[in-house]
Amino acid sequence: MRSRSWRPAAGHVFVSGYVVLLVAFGIAPTVYALNLAFTDGEGRFAGIGNFLRTAQDYRFVAAVGHVATYLVLWLVTLTVLVLLLALVVHRLASRWSRAALRFVYYVPGALAGASSVLLWLFMLDPSVSPVDGLVRSLWGDTFVQVIAPGHLPWIFTIIAFWTGAGGWITVMYGALNSIPYTVIEAARVDGAGPVKTALRVQLPMLRKWIVYMLILSLAAGTQLFVEPQLVSQAGFGVVGTDYSLNQLAYLYAFDQNDFNGSAAIAIDLLIVALCCAGLFVARGGLFDAD
């Protein structure tokens, strides 16, 4: 299917609009940010100076720690609970409860960004929360105590799980459906119970999907921005506006007017995202290019 030449063809006209957007908002900003990241304020080549300077900023290491802690919690929770719930729902006898549960788990996915964070600020405020007893016993009696920096990785994990898990549960459920019944039946005949079947047969067959979920979630998780931004706004300064890496890049650009530093951090994050995506595409697996 490889084309032999780059001679103008009708296909070029069809893709031209998309290619313009791809260049303008995919490639050009990357190239420009690279250029900024490797130059100084006067446009002179700065080598890796901006990367070193931003990485040595005491806020950078702290932000990496915050994001890493959140990612570990989030990815472990996501994997364990999504698989557990998908497996359990999949085994239910009643067709109606299978569909109803998947729907219920899934609906919060409509809330993303600022809306879901606002809703959870209320859920976490002991004075109005419907689960105030739980919140008080876990994290404290006042909103300010609840959003103490040490609690934030858990809080962001809960928010991300609430909005995102349902979609993945449905995906895993679909993948479980695609395992031939004869395979499960054979395991049963061999004496495997539900737990053994899940661990030895079903989960290994979901491997690709689990990797897909982990890579997309890892890449998205490194981008943490709106959650800490709103929490810090609502938190009377308990949490700084430099909690995550994207926030720090934002501060460099908007507070310090240091576009070169901002670009360096943005490139750091872009490299992580690019590696995740590239690794996944290169290893083949779920998605085919031809």
Partner: peptide, 10 residues
């Protein structure tokens, strides 16, 4: 496969 936010600041 990249999160769209990765390109926002660039």
């Amino acid at each position: 496969l990249m999160p769209a936010t990765a390109l926002v600041l660039p």
